[in-house]
Design a protein around this nucleic acid. Sequence first.
DNA 1: GTCTATATGCGGATAGAC
DNA 2: GTCTATCCGCATATAGAC
Lengths: 198, 198
Amino acid sequence: MRNKEKTYNEIVQTAYVMFSEKGFDQTSLSSIASEIGISKPAIYYYFKSKDELIKYLFDKIVQEIQSLTSVELETITTTNFKQNLYQLGEAAISHQEKDVHFNHLFNQYMLLASRDTYYSERLLKIQQDFLNTFYDLLTYAVKINAIKDENILIKSQLLALVFDNITNFILTDMKLDYKKIWIEAVDSVLSGVEHHEQ
Amino acid sequence: MRNKEKTYNEIVQTAYVMFSEKGFDQTSLSSIASEIGISKPAIYYYFKSKDELIKYLFDKIVQEIQSLTSVELETITTTNFKQNLYQLGEAAISHQEKDVHFNHLFNQYMLLASRDTYYSERLLKIQQDFLNTFYDLLTYAVKINAIKDENILIKSQLLALVFDNITNFILTDMKLDYKKIWIEAVDSVLSGVEHHEQ
DNA sequence: GTCTATATGCGGATAGAC
DNA sequence: GTCTATCCGCATATAGAC
C-alpha cells in the first residue's frame, strides 16, 4: 500500500522530468523504468499505455496553469490594481525559474495539439481562459474606476501575449530583465487609460 | 539530370510539410518516400541520414527568418518610422498566414535546441539578432530624432516579445485581431517617447 | 506489485542488382 | 538514380511466474 503509492509517484515525477528534457518520442518507458530502478512492465500496472501516461501529465499541467493564472478580483482596489498586475508577472517568472520543465512540457503538448484533437480542444479552452483572465481584470479595473474604458479588449490581449512569451523566452537562455519588461508592458499599456488625480 | 533535381525538391518539400504536421519522430523516411511515390533508399541518395535532412531544413528556415526580420535603416525617416514598425508586423502576420508550416517547424527546432547544442547555439544567435533588429530600429529612431532616448532597450525587447508571440498565437487557432494588437503595442510603447510637434 | 521472457512491429540504414 | 531485399536495434505491449 505504502510502496504502491510511492512507485506511482516516482513514475509520474520521472516521466514529467524526462519527457520535458528528451521529448515524448525520445523517452522510452524502459528508460523511465530504469531511471527509477524498476522494470518496464511495472509501469503498465499503473498506466495501461504510454499515451495514457502522457495524457495524465497533461491533466496535471492543465490544473497547474489554471491555478497560476487565476486572480481574485474581489481583492483588487483602485490603489493596488497596478501592483496586482506587476505581481502576476513576477509570480509567473518565479514559477518558471523554479520549474524549468513546466514550459518545455507544455510546448510539447502545444505541438501535439496540432495533430490530436484531444489536446487541441483542451488547449484552446485554456488559452481562452488565459485571455479572459486579463480581460476580466481590466474590465474590473474599469468598473472600480481605476482606468478608463478605452480599447480594453485589445489591451488585455496585448498584455496576455507579453506575459505568455516572457515565460517562453526564459527557456531560451536569453538573459533579459524580464521583470523590467513586464513592468514596462503594464506601464505602457495603461499609460493612456490611467486616471490621474491632481 | 532534370529528374534528379525534381526528386530532390520533392523530398525537401514533402519533408518540410510532413515534419511540421507530424513531428520529426512521427515522420518516418518511409512515409515521406511513399508520399512522393519513391522508395526509402532513394532518399539516402540525396541525404546521408535523417538527421542530415532535418538539419538541412533547419538551415533553410534560418535563412528565411533572417530575411524576414531584416530592416533597411537607411530608408527610415522621422515621418515614416512608425509606419515602418506597423508594416514589419503586418508582413510577419501575412507570412504566417501564407505558410502555416513555418512556425510549427520552427517550434520543433526550439525543442530540439534544449537537447542538442547544434541547434541551441544557432537559435540563440538568431534570437539575439531578432532582438537587435528592434533595438537598432529604436536606436536609429532616437538618432534621427523621431523618439526620445528613454528606456529604449527594454522597449525594444518588449516589442520583440509581442511580435514573436503574435506569430505563435496565430498557430493556436485563436481568432484575434492580431494587426490591431500589434498597432496597440507600437502605440503604447512609443506613446511616452514620441516627440509631439505643436 | 514486480519480475523475466517474449511477441510483434517499425524505425534507420546498407548491400547490391538494374 | 532508383529499386528489392535485408540487417539490426529498439519501441510498445503482453504472458505468466513469483
